[in-house]
Design a protein around this nucleic acid. Structure first.
Length: 565
RNA sequence: UGGGGCGUAGCCAAGUGGUAAGGCAGCGGGUUUUGGUCCCGCGAUGCGCAGGUUCAAAUCCUGCCGCCCCAGCCA
């Protein structure tokens, strides 16, 4: 790969990498890692990081590791490890044989800590957590040194050894780096390296009762794996001096930490805390609810890995806090689905249409194109008969200006079928329209006429006799405000939940072909949107479809703007 | 005794002294058997503000202003 390819669509991280390649700092090697903590499910924000790390490795002919940063046994579980691996794989990335765990390095980290103690750069502190906090000082005042700061190396060595052996209770002692209690950077005020935690770890069991802190562990993990570029989010910028300090003291391989802005999206929330609250309090149907910004939610909603990767690329990478418009994500989705989704016909809110001049017992098979964007997807046959269903909102008793659809006296085209003209609308005793009586023009088979007569409206339909019933779930944004966290006093983000984020339609009709639809397939319901088979609620006999996203709807826009004026 | 970052269009974002890329959103128009797709066109005399250096400044200097992060034995 030439460097021209790399600079295209450049970002500041690529600039740094290229500078390193010029200077030879890492021998032209690029090795990144995606380092999740296995304490929750991945979301679209993680996807950005995954695409970034694996993407850079790919761009520069390097490698990217999948590494679980499992240094806190209290929060971490095996269940999350599996789901994270599955998500990364689904997104289309391959860590090959480089699956690592921070816990695999616990022995080595312990040895490094001993080394630091021997150099007089770390000490065991007996101060209680509360006291450590007091001694740390504040943002504007310096901290003060712990009375145990100047213990002898021998004593520190012995105490640390006894910590490891389990001679002390949780919280009784910690190992601290001896740096600078005066530092303006609080991270440098003798940060804790090890805490005592008599807890079972999901991988190391009860082998350890002391566990390394993030700042101590992370740089070592990177160094051990010979990571060249350790990419993390902005809030770790203040930690970089500490990251560098540890590696310098140890005189080991020293990766470059680079920080970028995490992804924020409007109309949703991204924090682990809020996401789990939505699940726990039943606002959504689990972590994979199609309205959730989790990878599993997006997947169940019908998002494609390609769309998510395209999105990651288009949003760019920078250091300024920003909120990306979710419309961009949706655009990427439509862009991908437009090319790959088979077109089918379904009627979501049915209105019966009787074609009066079509023979009672006649049926025919009409040819339908599967995807006008892709001829290789071929054609299929659709049954047609005297009674069909069309969409309720494709009929208006009084046609507004520029209305191309059905109305008394209006002629429209049934896609792939015939032109029909509306003769009469039949109402029930409540005044609701329950049936349309139409006539068809037998000379317009296939949906066109030799006389060149213009018919502007084209409708989707389904033959009543041949249709199958199905459930369709229409999803909208989970929140009805751009920034759900922007609340008045006494309110919480859940007060901004969109009450109409899920609409379930149980009386929908689908064309016969769709009875074969399987989870994992993408369809465009003609004129309505992209849909997929729901993997959770669909049974052998009962199909449930999720609306992935709508099509752009110019008519809705015209009506909306018309109402405003 | 405070430290670290960030400000380019409604939203992202390139740009690294030579006269403001691109995408999304929006608005017009064309094509169309999806009011879809596709195609064409439209937005910064200006880069947080004010000075300064220079033939030339979003880019360099000075001073302000605004926003974000940091006081876990979380990551």
């Amino acid at each position: 790969m030439s460097s021209d390819d790399n600079t295209k669509g450049g970002n500041f991280i690529k600039a740094i990498i290229e500078e390193h390649n010029r200077s030879g700092r890492f021998d032209n090697r690029v090795h990144t890692r995606f380092p999740p903590e296995p304490n929750g499910y991945l979301h679209i924000g993680h996807a950005k990081s995954i695409c970034l790390n694996f993407g850079l490795a790919n761009d520069y002919n390097g490698k990217c590791n999948l590494r679980f940063d499992d240094t806190n046994p209290i929060k971490e579980e095996e269940e999350y490890v599996e789901s994270i691996k599955e998500n990364v794989r689904w997104l289309g990335f391959d860590w090959q044989d480089r699956l690592y765990f921070a816990s695999d390095y616990f022995d080595q980290m312990y040895d490094y800590a001993v080394q630091l103690i021997k150099h007089g750069k770390a000490y065991v502190d007996d101060l209680a957590a509360e006291q450590i906090k007091e001694y740390r000082g504040t943002l504007k005042e310096p901290g003060i040194e712990s009375p145990h700061r100047n213990r002898s190396i021998e004593e520190n060595l012995e105490l640390f050894e006894r910590m490891r052996k389990g001679e002390f209770a949780d919280g009784a002692k910690v190992l601290r780096a001896k740096i600078d209690m005066q530092s303006g950077n609080l991270n440098m005020r003798d940060p804790v390296m090890y805490r005592i935690l008599h807890a079972d770890h999901h991988r190391t069991g009860d082998k350890w009762c002391i566990y390394p802190m993030y700042d101590w562990a992370h740089g070592l993990e990177d160094s051990i794996e010979r990571i060249t570029h350790s990419i993390c989010t902005l809030e770790f910028e203040d930690h970089r001096p500490l990251y560098d300090w540890f590696l310098e003291q140890l005189d080991v391989f020293h990766p470059q930490q680079i920080e970028f802005a995490r992804l924020n999206l409007n109309y949703t929330v991204m924090s682990k805390r809020k996401l789990s609250l939505l699940v726990r309090d039943g606002y959504v149907d689990g972590w994979d609810d199609p309205r959730m910004p989790t990878i599993s939610g997006l997947r169940r909603r019908g998002y494609t890995p390609e769309a998510i990767r395209d999105f990651s690329e288009r949003i760019g990478v920078a250091k300024s806090n920003s909120v990306v418009d979710i419309a961009l994500l949706e655009h990427c989705l439509r862009d991908d689905l437009n090319k790959r989704a088979m077109r089918v016909m379904t009627v979501l809110e049915p209105l019966k249409v009787v074609i009066e001049n079509y023979p009672e017992d006649q049926e025919e098979e009409l040819e339908a194109v599967n995807n006008p964007e892709d001829d290789t997807m071929g054609k299929r046959m659709m049954p047609f008969s005297r009674v069909i269903y069309v969409e309720k909102n494709d009929f208006r008793e009084e046609a507004p200006r520029k209305w191309f659809r059905l109305a008394p006296g209006k002629e429209v085209r049934l896609k792939h079928a015939y032109y029909i003209t509306c003769k009469q609308a039949i109402k029930n005793e409540d005044g609701e329209i329950v049936e349309l009586r139409c006539t068809y023009d037998p000379k317009t088979k296939g949906g066109w006429s030799e006389d060149g007569r213009k018919v502007k409206g084209t409708l989707h339909w389904v033959s009543a006799k041949h249709a199958h019933q199905a459930e369709v779930r229409l999803y909208d944004h989970l929140f009805n405000t751009e920034n759900p966290d922007n609340v008045q006093e006494g309110q919480t983000f859940t007060d901004n939940i969109n009450p109409d984020s899920l609409k379930i339609l149980k009386n929908c009709f689908i064309e016969p072909y769709l009875t074969k639809a399987k989870p994992g397939e993408w369809y465009q319901f003609l004129r309505q949107g992209y849909f997929c088979v729901d993997s959770k609620h669909t049974t052998h006999k009962y199909k449930v479809f999720n609306r992935t996203t709508t099509l752009r709807d110019t008519w809705a826009r015209i009506e909306r703007s018309g109402k405003k004026t």
